[in-house]
Design a protein around this nucleic acid. Structure first.
Lengths: 242, 242
DNA sequence: TTAACGCATTAACCTATGACATAGCTAACG
DNA sequence: CGTTAGCTATGTCATAGGTTAATGCGTTAA
């Protein structure tokens, strides 16, 4: 049974900006249902123009691109609140694929009504653009990481970001959260080899700043971790949720 | 004397989707003038919330981020038709800085009217989102490059993209175009050292596929270059222009 | 005219990271 | 209970690319 948008617990999280009541009602009209998928399920395919639009409600996943030689670049980690399918809606095709890495539940929207976001509700159209800008902003930071930081700093940065995201989604208990990814996923996100990722994770664990094993991330010293990652520990900017 | 939007020659280039007449008139109302800047001029600053919004009309520039240790990541190369300042408009601050690397002329829009794009003209709001999605798409490709490709392939990829962009902007004559960047700029875009970039450029020159020197890029064999870059030479998708 | 500067180029040397090989752990399955 | 498959962990060796430094060359500034 699908959650009514009016009762959506996710939307109330600290990370998200508040919606006016009429905006919530507006969204409710587009919600056609909920989808629950198992780990490994592909949700969107690069190059496709699929009619689905989702907001992740729970669980996690990956955005990624594949090269012809089989290499994979993970573009981003999908967490609750993320909006999936925007590129296909505006550009006509997805620039990357998306798949679940844990059991996920997704809010499904009717894309044939997408255009009415723009026509009928300017504030929601604005938020859509905002979301795209947030994504662009984050990809810029990722590029800095992959291009300029050392392996250890990259890994620290990635774990820190995931942890901050988790905190604001209320996924953290006792400085620890579930992180349902494989080391290979992180390696592919940072342009590192699996082996080197593994070794760097070990080093990080020894440093007592953070540890990630058995699908759980523990962060012992967020500030020191941020320092190692050559960044500051300032909270993530708030953003809209669809 | 500023060009009237109705007569804008840039908008007619192959790269851009066509605008309806009323859309052109709508844009004209926001155009407050034109700006001409010299090489090296900063246009937007990371973290700032500047009131300017630009569309590049001619000349080139860079989007980049700086790290505290002085390293720089070039996020993207700015070419005619690019829209600058969107992030600040929706998120409240820029995620990167922008500066000119050649003499540039820019179309200046009044940001205080930005909101009326959404309220008064849904199709233009849609295009704004489209632009953000295009940028996100391109950053994804860049991430693949920096994360997965070898130095030579990265450089081939970057030169190919710049060349394709140039072609569609009608900047290419005799398989060659102006490319007003330093080797350091390309190095910072691809996460490579200056020295290694220089050596790889020399190798590319020897291979007779492409050469870039004295601020001019020559592409002798686009398909072979694409192959070296591990990509295909398909034309860039069309996109809106503001 | 010279000095100073920015940029391209080259060479010598070094290291962070990748590739390969192997082994152990855990979960699923018949 | 043994087998298989997927993942993590570690050691050794190889290399792509980084770092440093020196040279040259054209342009600007005094």
């Amino acid at each position: 049974m699908a959650v009514k948008c009016a009762n959506c617990p996710l939307r109330r999280r600290e990370l998200f900006v508040e919606l006016a009541r009429d905006e919530v009602e507006f969204m409710q009209r587009f919600k056609v249902g909920e989808l629950v998928v198992d780990p490994g399920t592909p949700l969107l395919m690069e190059g496709s123009n699929s009619p689905q639009l989702y907001t992740a409600l729970s669980g996690m996943g990956l955005r990624y691109k594949l090269l012809k030689d089989g290499k994979r670049q993970v573009i981003n980690f999908v967490m609750p609140g993320d909006f999936l399918g925007l590129q296909a809606s505006v550009m006509g095709e997805m620039g990357h694929s998306v798949e679940a890495t844990s059991r996920m539940t997704l809010c499904v929207f009717d894309r044939s009504e997408f255009w009415s976001f723009f026509k009928a509700h300017p504030s929601r159209a604005f938020d859509l653009t905002w979301l795209a800008a947030v994504e662009e902003h984050f990809l810029g930071e990722t590029l800095v990481t992959v291009g300029q930081r050392t392996a250890l700093a990259s890994i620290s940065w990635a774990l820190l970001k995931l942890f901050q995201r988790g905190k604001q989604l209320d996924l953290v208990r006792d400085a620890s959260m579930a992180l349902p990814y494989r080391q290979q996923d992180l390696a592919d996100a940072l342009g590192l080899s699996l082996v080197h990722t593994n070794k760097s994770l070990a080093k990080l664990r020894q440093s007592q700043l953070a540890s990630w094993s058995e699908k759980r991330l523990h962060v012992m010293d967020e500030n020191a971790l941020a320092k190692l990652a050559q960044t500051d520990a300032k909270p993530l900017p708030r953003r809209p949720i669809m």
